[in-house]
Each structure stands twice: as structure tokens, then as C-alpha cells.
């Protein structure tokens, strides 16, 4: 690094030293840096990148209340009992009204948390476009680099950003319940496409087997390049079927690793990350909210059409870059 040893770089060095020494507090602060877009968070992620890629990542998504946290708790205990270290990230929505959030997933991860060594981080999506994916995937990178062998990411399967996070894992589990609606609803929510594995949870309630059959029929119709997802019944609360879910995940990983699909997914994950960062970087450089708002409001007040206004704004931004001697 050529930068002088400023307060900022020494804060980074301090954090990295503690992170590498395995201090949980340093991991927690590192995740906060990423979440808060600390000016040094990019340098932090660069520094740990060589240690990223050793963990298995499992994304768990599905409708609210489907039992995702309860299942994740069970998976964490299953892998913990097998001697594997486990780190979890659970994402909940930010209130669009206050900007605050109530993050309650820890309550359901009680049993896993009483095992030593399980790390849980609750994140709010902070309502940002694409920002969630950047922060949550980076948090998973940090857990990976910290040395956890199993990394689990829970998101609520409503909204593309949330689904993208779970889909950015090595293996994506979609949790549904008889009460969460039929397979058509799952398809509308965009959940069918991302699943490597379906779990029909709350199999102690009526309709579970019907939903399982329906999902299997639906998957049978699809002609996809990827292997066909298994559909498993589970009662996460009673710890029934959780070991089978873990084994199905492991089977799928092994198959994806052997076929080269895992490697491709990880490359796609890095590519998506670069793309998001570029878009975000351009936005930060070029998008001056107030100026654009004002120019747009003026043009619209003059009776110009919205699409025309947008074209003109794009042109004037590009002209601005050229005047300044082209893109940096």
C-alpha cells in the first residue's frame, strides 16, 4: 500500500490483525464496516479475499413465517454436531416508514446459539437498491474468510433483492408451507427458479404432501440445464427431517462440484458483484439527486414528456463527462 499511515489505514490494519487472530468482535466490526459503507470497507474485503472460498454457503429463502430460522437453527446444530463451524446471516426488512428494523431471527436460533462457536449476525436490508446484495454477500465473504466452514444466509423471499442474496449462495433452499400458498404463488414470487432444493416445512399441518406432489409435478414439466431439485418434507420445530435436508444439501453440492456448476456459480457471484459495484460507483459519481430532480421538475412543468426528459438528462450527463475530458 502506497498511502501514508493515516488514522484510517491504521484502523484497517488494527481491524485486520484482530480479525486474523480470530476475534469475534473484529468480525462483527468488519461486517458493520461493510454494512455502513465505511470508506475502507473495499480495502478490507480486498485484504481478506485470498481467504474467501473455503466455506460452503447455503441460502435459505421463502415466504414470511415459513420456518426458515427454525430450519437454519436445525441445520446449524446438525453441522455443529458433525464438528463443523457455523456462521449465519439473517436479513430482515427495514421499515420504509422509519428506516428502523425489528430483527428477531435470533430468538428462533436459540438452540443453535447455545452451542458454542455459532455466530449469528442480524442485518436489516436498509431498503437500498442492490445495496442489500452487496452488504449481505460481503458479510458472507467475511464469515468465510474468518474460517467458518458452513455459512448460512436467511432472507425473506419477498422482493428480488432478498431472493438474489439467497440465490448467490452455493446452494439455495426454498422453504414453503401448506399455508404459504400453492406452487403457482411460489412461481410468481420468483422462488421456483432459484431453488436447488425445496423444503415443505410444517409437514405436521394439513396439505403438506399435496404441496410436495404439486411441486414435483411442476418441476417435472420444466426442462432445465440444472439438475432437478429434490422436494423434502420437514418439521423443523420438532427437528424431524432436518438431517435429511442437510444430507440433500450435501448431495447437491457434491453433484454441482463434480459437474463444474458450483465453480460457474461462484464465478457468476463475483461477476454480479463487480457489476453491482460498477453501477453503484457510477451512480455515486454521476447521479446528483437534487440537480436531477430539479431539472426534471422544470422540464415536466414545461409540458415535456417523461421519456423525452429522461433522454435529455442522460445526454446532458454524458456531455458533462466529455467536457471534463472524458471518463476518468
Amino acid at each position: 500500500m502506497t498511502a501514508p499511515l493515516t488514522a484510517a489505514t491504521s484502523a484497517l490494519e488494527d481491524l485486520l490483525a484482530e480479525f486474523r487472530a480470530g476475534k469475534v468482535g473484529a468480525l462483527a466490526r468488519a461486517i458493520s464496516w461493510v454494512e455502513n459503507r465505511h470508506p475502507q470497507s473495499g480495502a478490507l474485503l480486498d485484504a481478506v479475499y485470498p481467504q474467501v472460498g473455503r466455506a460452503w454457503r447455503t441460502g435459505v429463502t421463502g415466504p414470511p413465517g415459513a420456518g426458515k430460522s427454525t430450519l437454519v437453527d436445525g441445520l446449524a446444530r446438525h453441522w455443529g454436531a458433525a464438528g463443523r463451524s457455523v456462521g449465519l446471516v439473517a436479513v430482515d426488512p427495514t421499515s420504509p416508514f422509519s428506516g428502523g428494523a425489528l430483527l428477531g431471527d435470533r430468538v428462533r436460533m436459540d438452540r443453535a446459539l447455545s452451542q458454542t462457536g455459532v455466530y449469528v449476525r442480524s442485518m436489516a436490508n436498509r431498503g437500498s437498491l442492490g445495496g442489500l446484495s452487496l452488504a449481505a454477500v460481503a458479510a458472507a465473504d467475511l464469515l468465510d474468510a474468518f474460517g467458518f466452514q458452513e455459512v448460512l444466509l436467511e432472507t425473506v423471499g419477498v422482493g428480488q433483492a432478498e431472493i438474489d442474496v439467497a440465490a448467490a449462495a452455493d446452494t439455495t433452499v426454498v422453504v414453503l408451507t401448506p399455508a404459504s400458498g400453492d406452487s403457482v404463488q411460489a412461481m410468481k414470487a420468483g422462488l421456483m427458479e432459484v431453488a436447488d432444493l425445496f423444503v415443505v416445512n410444517k409437514a405436521d399441518t394439513p396439505g403438506a404432501e399435496r404441496l410436495q406432489t404439486e411441486l414435483e409435478d411442476m418441476l417435472g414439466l420444466r426442462r432445465a440445464a440444472a439438475p432437478r431439485p429434490e422436494v423434502l418434507l420437514c418439521r423443523a420445530l420438532a427437528d424431524q427431517g432436518v438431517a435429511e435436508v442437510a444430507q440433500a444439501i450435501e448431495r447437491r453440492r457434491a453433484a454441482d462440484q463434480a459437474s463444474g456448476r458450483l465453480e460457474a456459480r461462484r464465478r457468476a457471484r463475483d461477476l454480479a458483484r463487480v457489476r453491482r459495484l460498477v453501477v453503484e460507483g457510477l451512480r455515486a459519481e454521476l447521479w446528483h439527486e437534487q440537480e436531477i430532480q430539479e431539472a426534471a421538475a422544470r422540464a415536466l412543468a414545461h409540458g415535456e414528456r417523461p421519456d423525452e426528459v429522461a433522454r435529455k438528462l442522460v445526454r446532458s450527463i454524458l456531455e458533462g463527462i466529455q467536457r471534463n475530458g472524458g471518463p476518468a
Binding site: G99, A101, L102, L103, V107, D110
Partner: peptide, 15 residues
């Protein structure tokens, strides 16, 4: 917890 959320804080509820 709910009132702090409504004031814009991220509240981690531990049960």
C-alpha cells in the same frame, strides 16, 4: 423494541 424501531433504530430482539 417496536418503539425504537419506529424511531429509526435497528433493534435486535433476543427473547
Amino acid at each position: 423494541a417496536a418503539s425504537l424501531r419506529d424511531r429509526g433504530m435497528e433493534v435486535i430482539y433476543t427473547g
